[in-house]
Design a protein around this nucleic acid. Structure first.
Lengths: 257, 257
DNA sequence: CCGCCATATTGACGCAGGTCAAGATCGCGG
DNA sequence: CCGCGATCTTGACCTGCGTCAATATGGCGG
């Protein structure tokens, strides 16, 4: 193989078009016609992969693009004036990061790779003008922002009223579900974040997360060894989390006061 | 006065055009040209006011419009399968509700009036097509959704790592700031929600909220009597909340890992 | 104007989970 | 292959806040 071929291969790896990307049913392209996809492709820049602990952007920096995770994973976090970190989200392939910065043009959070991670950079001004022309793109952008609001509301609910067990169970379910949507096994996966990260995100102490993991393991709910998790009893895990199983029938509507 | 005149007046009260609405620098119209405003006006329906405890919509209902609060206030809340309520937001005039329902076309939350409240109904399909034509409308819609994400992140941070005192202080600051933006006094206002609602929202027990209020009052931070609150020491309240005072100088950026 | 019910306050007590501390285990660089 | 630092686990102890319970207060309907 000549070095030229290698270069081409490398470029190819960076330059998967949206139409060929396996994530296009989760990501921005969802619902777009093939020829419109080309116009979206044209404004997207594929960046070199980030190494673990490398930051995609820092809190306070100017916002001019949103990012779609292509592979790997990221955490987004705020830093208080006392230097403590608060993790606000973990982001898997096909998910967008940076949406929180549209409001005032500065990133309120930092984003850091949890493992080798590559992203697509989508300049926001171009995205805005393109989505004015492509209704399905505009719709999907609004949908994804709405989804983020919805997910944050679920996290808030967990933080406000769930016990340590319930929070961790809900967290694992969320990961499992999202991994499954991305074609991975829903019951065997690796945690790309540390215990400390999980604890921080869930508003718990690191030690509590560790203890709850062992407790769940002793209960036969799952097996966990370091980063590797295997969920052994989905149903019981759902019950644990206090979340209705997605297969459950929808409850009838409630009436006021 | 004839009854005809009264009718006209009543209609007038319902039908303030966006251009004449005092909230148009906070709400969707921000940044729009005067003649574009008319097109927005045309798709908005002003609804009859809601009475206290009346619901604007219920969780599970179909989504077809977002709402802007015109006067009064709302809470949005989820209901768990065991019937417990989790409040996820309080909404003041100029704020939008229902944005979380765009993602899958059903309302994930219910919205209930905390006092006599009137809203503008904005059919979502019409809003979408109009914002494809009016860049400033599209921009403001994205901005407001981004702002909601940002605000939810702040709430998550409070829930994950703040003490009861800090949460309540942060809550009061948030209310105070938002009321000030709307032309009300930032240090004398009425709480339209009950202690129970505040506690629920902040992930605390009702009794804790009550105790923290009295403690803060004894510390000279504020005066509170039933619904009426007077903030006596903004600076100390900010210090309490662990939130940097808005007048504070921005901290330098952080470096990774 | 009175009585009742919703709402709020205050106190006593217990526990989930935080903190501190001591190992254990892993993985990486030399 | 070894040693050291990062990460994780486990234990012991303590505290902030939840829970339960009693009392106060206000507002509204009759």
């Amino acid at each position: 193989m000549s070095s030229e071929t290698k270069t081409v291969l490398t470029l190819k790896r960076f330059k998967v078009a949206c139409g060929d990307c396996s994530l296009n049913t989760l990501c921005l392209p969802l619902g777009m016609a093939a020829d419109d996809l080309g116009r979206l492709d044209a404004i997207i820049e594929r960046k070199r992969p980030l190494a673990r602990t490398e930051n995609l952007y820092h809190c306070g920096e100017q916002f001019d693009a949103i990012y779609a995770v292509r592979s790997g994973s990221l955490k987004t976090y705020a830093t208080s004036e006392h230097g403590e970190e608060q993790i606000l989200g973990f982001h898997l392939p096909g998910e967008l990061v940076g949406l929180d910065a549209i409001a005032d043009g500065l990133h309120p959070l930092s984003a850091q790779a949890l493992e080798t991670t590559s992203v697509c950079e989508i300049p926001f001004d171009k995205l805005e003008s393109l989505s004015a022309q492509l209704p399905s793109l505009q719709h999907q952008l609004l949908r994804l922002m709405s989804l983020e609001i919805h997910d944050d509301q679920k996290t808030m609910t967990a933080l406000a009223q769930k016990s340590a067990e319930e929070r961790l169970a809900a967290f694992l379910i969320s990961l499992s579900t999202r991994l499954q949507q991305r074609g991975f096994s829903p019951n065997r996966f690796n945690l790309s974040m540390s215990r400390g990260d999980i604890a921080n995100y869930l508003g718990l102490a690191l030690e509590t997360v560790s203890r709850v993991f062992t407790r769940m393991q002793n209960d036969g709910l799952l097996r966990v060894e370091r980063k590797a998790v295997e969920l052994l009893d989905q149903d019981r895990l759902y019950a644990y989390a206090g979340t209705p199983c997605p297969s459950a029938s929808p409850q009838s509507s409630r009436h006021s006061s």
